[in-house]
Amino acid sequence: MPTVAIVTCDALPELDPDEARLLPALRESGVEAVPAVWSDPRVDWSEFDLSVIRCPWDYPERRDEFLAWSRRVPRLANPAPVLEWNTDKRYLVDLAAAGVPVVPTTRLPPGGGIALPSVGEWVLKPAVGAGSRNAGRYVMDDPEQNRQAHEHVHRLHRGGATVLAQPYQPDVDVNGEKALMFLGGTYSHAIRKGAMLDGPYRGMESLYKSERITATTATDAERDLAARALAAVPTDGVPLLYGRVDLVESAVGTVVLEVEVAEPSLFLGWDPPAAHRVAAAITARLAG
C-alpha cells in the first residue's frame, strides 16, 4: 500500500477538519494517508511515496524556511518551484503579463516612499500572506482610515514585507468571491465566499478568518478564465495536482483575485464527492 503524507502545520497536526476528509477517501482508494507537520524535524519525507501540501498555513511568517524545506522533499505536490512562485503574490504581475485579467495591483516594497491613493476604497495586504492575515480595507477619503492605512503599511514594512494595494471591488459586498477548484487539471467544483474584509485591519487570533461559504456553480466563461489562469502557472512541465482560482466581478468584467496552487483550501465539504476526486488525482499521480 503506497503511503502519502498530507502536509500540515503545528497548529493543525490532525489537519483542518475539511482537509481531514481526504484521509478516509484515500484509504478507500488503497492509499495510506498520514498527516505530517512540515516543520517537524522527526519526519523522514523520503519514506513517503508522495507528499501533498494541504494546510501548512503558518508559512507566511516562515516563508524562507518553508521553501527550503520544500526543496528537500523528494516527491512533493505541488512541487517546490510552484510553491516559490505562488507564495508571493507578485505572481499577479506574471498573470497580467500573460494576458489574464487580474485585479489591479500596486506593489509597495519596504525602503521606498509610501504612495497610497487619497480617494476611494482600497485593500492593503502583504505580498506574502494567507487567510486574510494582515489584510485590511480602507476608505482613503476618511482621514482616520487614511491614517490607519499608512500605519498599516509602515508596520508591514518594518517587518520587511512588501505591501500590495488593490482597489476594493464593491460587487464583493453583494455577490462575494467565487472560488473554482481544479483537481488533476480538471474542473471539480465551486463555492462562493462572502466579503472577508469589513474595515481596517484589527488583528487576528487564528490562522485564518472565518468565512461565509455556499456551494455554487461556475459558468463556462468562469471555467475558461480560471483554466487560462492556471495555464499561466510556470510548472516546468510538471502537471498541477490541485489548484484554486478566486474570481470577482469588476467594472470591466470578471477578473482573477488570486490563483492558489500552493496550499489552498479546497472546500471539500461543500461538494461531497470532491474528496474522492482529490484521492483519484493523488492515486493517478502515484501511478504516473
Results as ranks from 00 to 15, higher is better:
residue 80 A to F: 09
residue 37 V to T: 03
residue 46 S to Q: 07
residue 73 V to M: 12
residue 84 E to H: 04
residue 37 V to G: 00
residue 46 S to D: 06
residue 62 R to C: 03
residue 87 T to I: 08
residue 36 A to P: 04
residue 33 A to H: 00
residue 68 A to L: 06
residue 38 W to R: 04
residue 73 V to L: 09
residue 63 R to Q: 11
residue 75 R to P: 07
residue 75 R to M: 11
residue 65 E to N: 05
residue 74 P to M: 04
residue 24 P to E: 01
residue 28 E to I: 00
residue 34 V to W: 10
residue 64 D to A: 15
residue 49 D to C: 06
residue 76 L to I: 11
residue 59 Y to A: 04
residue 82 V to T: 10
residue 69 W to R: 15
residue 79 P to C: 04
residue 84 E to I: 07
residue 90 R to V: 11
residue 20 A to F: 09
residue 92 L to Q: 10
residue 30 G to C: 06
residue 73 V to T: 13
residue 61 E to Y: 09
residue 40 D to W: 11
residue 20 A to Q: 08
residue 51 S to Y: 12
residue 61 E to R: 09
residue 31 V to C: 02
residue 38 W to M: 14
residue 80 A to C: 11
residue 35 P to K: 05
residue 52 V to K: 03
residue 71 R to E: 14
residue 57 W to C: 02
residue 17 P to W: 11
residue 25 A to H: 10
residue 25 A to G: 06
residue 34 V to L: 06
residue 56 P to V: 07
residue 92 L to S: 10
residue 62 R to I: 06
residue 63 R to A: 06
residue 80 A to T: 07
residue 42 R to V: 12
residue 50 L to V: 03
residue 93 V to A: 15
residue 69 W to S: 13
residue 93 V to C: 10
residue 85 W to I: 01
residue 91 Y to W: 06
residue 86 N to F: 02
residue 76 L to Y: 13
residue 81 P to M: 04
residue 87 T to P: 00
residue 62 R to D: 12
residue 81 P to G: 05
residue 56 P to Q: 04
residue 22 L to F: 04
residue 48 F to H: 07
residue 40 D to I: 13
residue 81 P to T: 08
residue 69 W to C: 09
residue 54 R to H: 11
residue 61 E to I: 06
residue 36 A to G: 08
residue 47 E to C: 04
residue 44 D to H: 13
residue 83 L to M: 14
residue 35 P to D: 01
residue 59 Y to H: 03
residue 84 E to N: 05
residue 65 E to S: 14
residue 43 V to S: 10
residue 35 P to C: 02
residue 68 A to D: 12
residue 58 D to N: 03
residue 81 P to Y: 08
residue 81 P to W: 04
residue 70 S to G: 14
residue 58 D to A: 00
residue 68 A to P: 00
residue 37 V to A: 04
residue 61 E to H: 14
residue 49 D to W: 05
residue 24 P to K: 03
residue 54 R to Y: 09
residue 32 E to A: 13
residue 60 P to L: 03
residue 62 R to V: 02
residue 64 D to N: 07
residue 32 E to Q: 04
residue 42 R to K: 13
residue 70 S to T: 15
residue 32 E to K: 02
residue 93 V to S: 14
residue 55 C to V: 15
residue 47 E to H: 10
residue 51 S to R: 10
residue 40 D to H: 10
residue 22 L to R: 05
residue 77 A to I: 11
residue 43 V to R: 14
residue 33 A to Q: 02
residue 64 D to Y: 02
residue 84 E to Q: 13
residue 27 R to F: 05
residue 49 D to I: 01
residue 35 P to V: 00
residue 84 E to S: 09
residue 22 L to T: 06
residue 41 P to A: 07
residue 32 E to M: 08
residue 19 E to A: 15
residue 93 V to L: 14
residue 33 A to R: 00
residue 94 D to Y: 08
residue 61 E to W: 14
residue 27 R to D: 14
residue 59 Y to W: 05
residue 79 P to A: 09
residue 79 P to E: 09
residue 31 V to N: 03
residue 53 I to N: 13
residue 82 V to A: 01
residue 94 D to T: 05
residue 54 R to G: 11
residue 67 L to T: 01
residue 27 R to T: 03
residue 94 D to H: 02
